[in-house]
């Protein structure tokens, strides 16, 4: 019998706001980019629509004095983690060691690294900030979540660009199956900043997208997004979970993979043309009525598959989509992650 993970709680923060009500609203009504960031390119000033996330509601869970040194990257993760725990009916802070924290991020705390470099470059090596440095490692979100929520269980940060979410999920499943812990607080978090937008411009040019159209596979319509999506997972212990089960997680080679039939497919297509063409090829035999994307709700980010799974689970709980679906995420290196939900 395959081991399945029960989803006990979900927490999200993204451009559409935070919490499951905001997420459900976005699922019903859609969600457009909520902000515009400006960058300088060689061709002049560029305004980039983005999905920008606000972690301010974290102060409802954690005293603001504890947050003074915590960077936005960590705050986004901590807010989504708190929302997931609250949704699952757990105490906050947890003060326990039987929860593991596993976080996936594509770009990590890049904004903090750049802030650190600002001081070094503009003022000198002696002006490097130890606080910024401590928070600039990819693991800062995981560390801050364990500290703020007082979780002393195992912790893990994985980074594998678009495959980060499935990588994290595989580890979560192992830890639950071997009973290393009773629960896993699993999340994905990524940030946007001017450097990222400058790179978007560098790669994709002056035509700035205002709307992601993921199923127009041959168009470059990616709009950068940031945020955090967390789930509280346990083993299937007989109690019916509010958000169903993740019953299969697998890492596949693109060339060797066929997507399952007779199940709703949630491709992680998010407007990037290179991957879009791969999705088109992968899904050509799938009835378009059986394909649904969510990236247009939260934006484009490497750990986006965590959002796909979380949003799809909320949608399924509210009858918007069937409980049986399969999230499919691929990268430009021929890797593919499949996550089946029931």
């Amino acid at each position: 019998m395959t081991f399945r993970m029960a989803i006990r709680g979900i927490g999200l923060v993204a451009g559409f706001g935070c919490g499951n009500e905001a997420a459900l609203n976005a699922l019903h009504n859609g969600a457009a980019p909520n902000d515009v960031l400006s960058i300088q390119a060689s061709t002049g000033g560029i305004n980039y629509p983005v999905y920008q996330a606000d972690p301010a509601p974290l102060k409802d869970f954690v005293p603001s004095g504890q947050l003074r040194r915590v960077n936005k990257y960590s705050r986004l993760a901590a807010l989504a983690a708190c929302l997931a725990l609250q949704d699952a009916g757990r105490n906050i802070p947890c003060q326990c060691s039987d929860i593991a924290v596993i976080i996936a991020s594509g770009y990590g705390a890049s904004s903090t690294t750049f802030a650190f470099l600002d001081d070094v470059i503009l003022q000198g090596d002696s002006f490097a900030s130890p606080t910024l440095f401590s928070n600039s490692v990819h693991s800062a979100a995981t560390s801050n979540v364990t500290i703020l929520l007082q979780i002393s269980g195992p912790s893990l940060t994985v980074t594998q660009f678009e495959m980060s979410a499935v990588a994290a999920l595989l580890n979560a499943r192992i830890w639950l199956e071997e009973k290393r812990v009773d629960s896993v607080l699993l999340g994905g978090v990524d940030q946007i900043n001017q450097v990222l937008l400058y790179c978007y411009h560098g790669f994709f040019g002056d035509r700035i997208p205002h709307e992601i159209t993921p199923l127009r596979y041959d168009l470059q319509t990616a709009v950068p997004g940031e945020g955090a999506a967390f789930m509280l997972l346990t083993a299937d212990d007989g109690r019916i979970p509010p958000y169903g089960y993740i019953d299969m997680v697998s890492w596949e080679a693109f060339n060797n993979c066929t997507v399952p039939e007779d199940v709703l497919i949630i491709p992680g297509a998010d407007g990037h043309r290179t991957c879009g063409l791969h999705y088109r090829k992968l899904l050509k035999a799938v009835d378009p009525a059986n394909i649904k994307t969510f990236s247009q709700i939260y934006g484009c980010m490497p750990s986006g598959q965590m959002f796909d799974i979380a949003l799809a689970s909320i949608a399924a709980k509210n009858g918007l989509i069937p409980a049986s679906f399969c999230s499919v995420k691929l990268d430009a290196n021929g890797n593919l992650g499949l996550v089946h939900h029931s």
Partner: peptide
């Protein structure tokens, strides 16, 4: 190699 690969960022 075609299989699972990932980087761990646990400092």
């Amino acid at each position: 190699l075609n299989g699972l690969r990932q980087c761990i960022a646990n400092a």
